[in-house]
């Protein structure tokens, strides 16, 4: 393989233009390696050459992201890069965001492999780690030497077309990919092994880390519930008969909103459940067992609440990704607020 042409992206600070006061620096492209690129070049040795370095102010990139990306893409094309490296950005927020964004843009537009490096809690990691390969680093430039040596190692292996191993072995931020592997022991044996280790207080590594859930402060109490508009929401998959919007019975790709105006009772003739994760017999007989409309309508008539909101929201909470569910929840919340709803009863199965 011939020598690969690498373009390196760094900010104004590492590009030796200046500190925060030079944050508005527009993109500059220099031939060869600059700043941390010099050390990186030594590590890349003969397999790859940093043919150009892009230096851009963090503030400029953050405030003019699209323009900065355009300028940089135009500027580096003539160097005909085979590979693109950005950072390391450590825990510098705007720098990390810039590294993620420019890597994504280069990958999508120039169709070449990219890699960056930053501290896992850098906001750039949360936003781009799924699409852009990101090496984990320490949180400040004190970790530069270690970061560059691992960054160059990983880059060289990518340049040489080697397949990368798991994130834990290679030190990059997990991208949520699932791959098939041959395992010596079945899942059941591995699970029991893990359990025994846990019981003995020994170290073990989970194969499926649990997602981290948000915590929110409790909403204030509703002052006059007799005047409040209350809405019904469910993840139990109750839909109008026939499932007109085709909500999937597992891993739902959407939520839907249906009118219950002038409906006093959910009947099996008009409603059903499409949830694929629980025995549907009881909900099919009487959907109120999952979405308690009949009871709420009576309480509305008895003056316990001001009004039952005219629509209910529904999705299927069956192997649905937390990220998707959060998205549906946020959208439903916004819609409810915009429609003057002050309380929600969310049922799940």
């Amino acid at each position: 393989m011939g020598q690969q042409r690498v373009v390196h992206y760094i900010n104004q600070f590492f590009g030796q233009i200046g500190g925060e006061e030079k944050g508005n620096q527009t993109p500059i492209i220099r031939d060869g390696a600059v700043g941390p690129g010099l050390a990186l070049q030594k590590l890349l040795e003969k397999d790859a050459t940093i043919v150009a370095t892009v230096i851009c102010g963090d503030t400029y990139f953050a405030e003019n992201t699209e323009a900065a990306i355009d300028e940089i893409l135009q500027g580096i094309k003539k160097y005909e890069p085979d590979f693109f490296i950005a950072g390391p950005a450590f825990n510098a927020g705007r720098y990390g965001l810039a590294c993620g964004a420019i890597c994504q843009a280069v990958k999508d537009n120039l169709k070449i492999p990219v890699i960056t490096a930053m501290y896992p809690e850098n906001p750039g990691a949360e936003l781009y780690a799924k699409d852009v390969l990101m090496l984990k680093t320490g949180n400040s430039a004190v970790a530069m030497k270690d970061a560059l040596s691992r960054l160059s190692g990983l880059a060289l292996r990518m340049i040489n077309g080697e397949e990368l191993g798991f994130p834990e072995e290679e030190g990059y931020i997990p991208q949520g990919c699932r791959v098939n592997i041959w395992a010596e022991k079945t899942g059941a044996v591995r699970a029991v092994d893990m359990l025994l280790k846990k019981m003995k207080g020994e170290a073990y590594e989970t194969e499926l880390p649990m997602p981290v859930f948000d915590r929110v402060n409790p909403a204030p109490a509703i002052d006059r519930i007799q005047d409040a508009v209350i809405a019904l929401v469910t993840s139990g998959g109750i839909v109008p008969k026939g499932n007109p919007d085709r909500i999937e019975s597992a891993n739902a790709s959407k939520y839907c909103k249906y009118s219950i105006e002038r409906i006093d009772d959910l009947t099996s003739q008009e409603f059903e459940t499409v949830h694929g994760g629980y025995d549907p017999v009881y909900a099919l007989q009487d959907p109120d067992r999952v979405l308690p409309l009949d009871a709420m309508r009576q309480l509305e008539k008895e003056g316990e609440i001001g009004k039952l909101y005219d629509y209910f929201y529904t999705t299927v909470g069956n192997t649905t990704a937390v990220s998707n569910a959060s998205r549906y929840g946020e959208a439903i919340g916004k819609d409810l607020l915009a429609n003057g709803v002050s309380g929600v009863i969310l049922t799940s199965t």
Binding site: G236, Y278, D279, P280, V281, Y282, A283, Q285, D286, D288, R289, V290, L291, P292, D294, A295, M296, Q298, L299, E304, I345, T347, S348, T349
Partner: peptide, 25 residues
């Protein structure tokens, strides 16, 4: 219960609605 969080098929229809109203209150 998981398949009927706001109901109970073992009850009569009237009793079940009573239970549901109690829960909603």
């Amino acid at each position: 219960a998981i398949p009927y969080p706001t109901g109970n098929p073992a009850l009569s229809e009237g009793e079940e609605l009573k239970l549901r109203k109690k829960m909603m209150l």
